[in-house]
Each structure stands twice: as structure tokens, then as C-alpha cells.
Amino acid sequence: MAEFSLADALADGPVVLAFYPGVFSRTCTQELCELRDWKADLADLDAPLYGVSADTPWSLLAFMDEHDIQYPLVSGFNNSVVADFGVRRAEGIMRGIANRAVFVVDPSGTVTYTWKATEPLTFPDTDAVEAAVAEAAAGE
């Protein structure tokens, strides 16, 4: 396990951050596996994809092993990354977890694309994310 640094990740170009509520739930498993399969398309754009949740590092490692996830999953457990991007649930029984969202961050640290789920069982349009990554990379 290594500590995640957005600044370090941005040193090589734009990044994609995909926030999700939690591993091993039915919907998140579907989303993370779809992103795993989509990651091959994104590889041509040379932008790393990071999954981000409030899960513990150990549960993330177990999930990655079980579902052959080849991109990093970042733990927002006991740090502020979920809140920093404004996707931390503030109320209710599920408070503290991340809402489903995707951000493209350009090398300067500016968020150039945002998608936030407005209802359950919705996922980002990967074509729109790819276009945003290409645009962020072109602006380097």
C-alpha cells in the first residue's frame, strides 16, 4: 500500500478520479468492473484512472484481487479526499461515504470535467470522459 498524492499523479498529465460509495456493493462492483473494461480505451489517452472511496485500504486490496482491477483504488478512509472534491455524504445512515462522481483534473490541478450521479444506478458517459481527458492533455 502506498499513499496517494494527486500532485504526484498530475506530474505526468491529466488524471481521472472516479468516486464511488463502496466496494463489494452490487452497483459499485458493476461500475468498477465497467471502468476496468473501459480502461483499455483510456490507455490510448495516457491518463491514469483512480477509483476513490471511503473504504479501508484492506477492503480495496481484496476487491482488486477478486475482480482483477488493474487501476489503483484510493482509500479516502481517515483522510479528506472525498470531502475535498465535495462528494462526501453529510447526512443519513450512509454519511461519510462518497457519492458517485467522476472528475478529470488537468496537470495544473484544475478540474476540467465533472460528472455527478443524480440518481442510483447511473454511470458516467465514458465517451465524454475520454473527450475531457483529450482536451485536458492538449492544454498541457
Results as ranks from 00 to 15, higher is better:
G51R: 00
A134G: 07
T56M: 14
A90K: 11
T27Y: 11
D125G: 00
V129L: 05
Q70Y: 00
T126P: 00
L73W: 00
G22C: 09
D68L: 10
A138N: 04
G96I: 12
R36T: 09
E66I: 02
E31P: 02
M94W: 12
I69H: 05
L10G: 07
L35S: 07
R100E: 13
W115P: 10
F4G: 04
A132R: 01
N99R: 14
V23F: 05
D65T: 10
C33S: 10
P14N: 03
G51F: 01
M64H: 06
T112S: 12
L61M: 08
T122F: 04
E91P: 04
D125R: 08
P107G: 03
W38P: 00
F63M: 04
G51L: 03
V102T: 12
G96Y: 11
P72T: 06
I93C: 08
V82N: 05
L73T: 06
A40E: 15
I69W: 06
D106A: 07
D65E: 15
V15C: 05
D8R: 12
S25D: 12
F123M: 12
F103N: 08
D84H: 02
P21W: 11
D41V: 04
M94I: 06
S75D: 03
A90H: 09
A90Q: 13
G139D: 13
S108E: 13
A47N: 02
G76F: 07
T112A: 02
P14M: 03
P72H: 01
L42K: 06
D12L: 03
S75R: 02
A136T: 01
S25F: 07
A47V: 02
T122N: 10
M1V: 06
V111H: 04
A136E: 03
A117D: 14
G109F: 07
R95I: 09
L32D: 07
A128P: 04
I97C: 09
V16M: 03
A132L: 04
D37V: 11
A138F: 02
A83W: 07
F123N: 09
R36P: 03
F103P: 06
V105E: 00
G86R: 07
A54C: 14
G92V: 10
V104E: 05
S80K: 05
T56A: 12
L121N: 14
P124M: 06
L32H: 08
G92K: 07
V23I: 10
N99M: 13
M1Y: 01
T110Y: 03
D84E: 15
G86P: 11
Y50P: 10
G109R: 02
V87I: 09
P48L: 01
Y71V: 09
T110S: 08
F123R: 15
D44Q: 10
G13L: 00
R26A: 13
L35R: 03
T29A: 11
A128T: 01
K39L: 09
F19K: 08
R26V: 13
T122A: 09
A137P: 03
C28N: 12
V52H: 03
C33N: 10
W58A: 15
D65M: 08
I69R: 06
L6R: 01
F63P: 07
T56L: 14
A40P: 01
N79K: 00
P72I: 01
P21K: 11
L10F: 04
A62R: 15
